[in-house]
Amino acid sequence: MNDAKFIIRYSLGDSFLEKLAGKTKVLLFFSSIILMMASFDLRIILPLFILNFLFFKSVYQEIKILKFIIIFTLVMNILNFILFYLVNPTTGTELSQTFTLLFKFNDYYVITYETVIYFITRIFKIIGTLMISLWFILSITPSELASGIYGCKIPYKYATMVSLGLRYIPDIYRDFNAIKESMQMRGIELDPKKASLFKRIIANTKILIPLLLVSFERIELIASAMDLRGYGQLDERSYYSDKDLTKTDQKVIYFAYFQLLCAVVYIVLNMFNVVPKLWVL
């Protein structure tokens, strides 16, 4: 009960991704997600999707919530497509400036080949983004995340915010539960069946006030503890959890740079209308 089930892992196995250095994982993640966001071209999105799906499969864990999240994202987006279609049945056609009729309900609601491609592209793009996020979360430890962020030349203060945040999430979660339980004993009702929405909103403020006060008390103490051990005196910092880059790391980093380059080139070409807004065969 006190140990929340978080998706992020604290110890890793030894698959290909898991063994990479923190910096490599962070770079690969960012370059993949940026390229995925930048393009609307199935020729880029599909291979990217397949690669990242394989990455995801290699670190997949049997966790209930994961399945739920994937299904939830799929369902939400399919619903969205139906809405999009109802509002504008020829999105794809407008983007590609071509019209290939496949099916016709009436004069307005038609299905064009371009729109089908458009929806396929979009779903691969969104599920792909989710796959990238998930393999990243499943293959990195909080420590590697911090050293990885610093490794990407981001000042270590920001890496500290992330790692310290992850360090105190379990503690805060424990406080949150303890306070919630004690308030329930006092008589607040959080069950939607038993109390009105307004009452529940007020009940939540009763949990928030002590949670905030207890958490803020900590800030000064933690800051003291860090200052007493010389935090923030130098402009550079080393990380215990860092690893030396292996040959594999080097190769993956080159690949990440290549992806970044692709993304930049694609965005520039897109701005000058050199590449199609939506690629159709």
Partner: peptide, 8 residues
């Protein structure tokens, strides 16, 4: 030690 930027 990390704060002193000590080699790993």
């Amino acid at each position: 030690l990390e704060n002193k930027n000590m080699p790993r």
